[in-house]
Computed example of a mutant assay.
Amino acid sequence: MPPRRSYDQYCSAARALDLVGDRWTLLIVRELLAGPRRYTDLHADLPGVSTDVLASRLKDMERDGLATRRRLPPPGAASVYELTERGRQLLPVLQALGEWGQAELGERRPTDAVRAHWFALPLLRSLEGEGLVEVGLEEGDFHLRVGAGDGPVYGDGPAPGTADARLVMDAGTCAAVARGESTLRQAVRAGLVTVTGDGTLAKELREA
């Protein structure tokens, strides 16, 4: 592979941007925080990226030790990409970037794509403790692993197994939390989020 482009500056921020500063790289990380993903799934959930650019970014991430590719055993027999430990360490970076970008979110534009699981990271910022949380939106279900030390922090679809809490809300409420206009606890108190479940997280939210 060709050598990585560099800012050639002896600065940790510049070194970090050497690895993740290219367009689409951090959004690929966002998708891979859900766990192993096939190339076709990544392309479907990154509307606007070309196949050539996606393939190039994934190769860069493999070269730089942020992601790996492996072959699933039969009957899957498909190649998947997943984050390395170094790649998973970008979670707080994405969280901080998302929090900083709240002021830029505004109302959804007609040209804006949306996926239900894109709300996962903003909701994670509103939850404390540990546990499995299932979220139901009109656009679909996803689940969060609150306080996960390693591995996937969220995933598409219902929670695997019994969730500690299930949250049901409309997209407007979820977007308000993502924009920083409301905390999750405030939305629960206002009756905008239905909380069910017997886990500690559910009880804490109902008592908020």
Rank of each mutant, 00 (worst) to 15 (best):
G65S: 09
T40F: 04
A77I: 08
R70P: 04
L19G: 01
A96T: 14
R30W: 07
P74R: 12
P3E: 15
A159R: 00
L105P: 11
R189K: 08
A103Y: 15
A176I: 00
R189D: 09
D60R: 01
L72A: 05
S6W: 12
G199R: 04
R23K: 15
R15E: 11
R57P: 01
G101L: 13
V177R: 00
A120G: 07
D141H: 11
R125V: 06
K203Q: 14
D18Y: 09
T173K: 05
T84R: 09
A34D: 05
L72M: 10
I28Y: 15
P110C: 05
Q9Y: 07
E181A: 03
A120Y: 10
L201M: 15
V135D: 06
G35N: 08
L121T: 01
P75R: 07
A178F: 14
G155Q: 05
L26R: 01
A187M: 04
L91F: 08
G48D: 12
P122D: 12
V146M: 13
R57C: 02
D22T: 07
V146L: 11
L205H: 02
F119S: 00
G157Y: 11
C11I: 12
R125Y: 08
H117S: 08
C174D: 03
A55Q: 04
T196E: 15
P75H: 14
T84A: 07
G76Y: 11
R115D: 05
S182G: 00
E138M: 07
A67H: 12
D141N: 14
H43L: 14
D41C: 13
D112M: 06
L184G: 00
T173S: 10
L26D: 01
L19T: 03
D52S: 00
L54C: 11
S56N: 02
V80M: 10
G136N: 14
L46W: 13
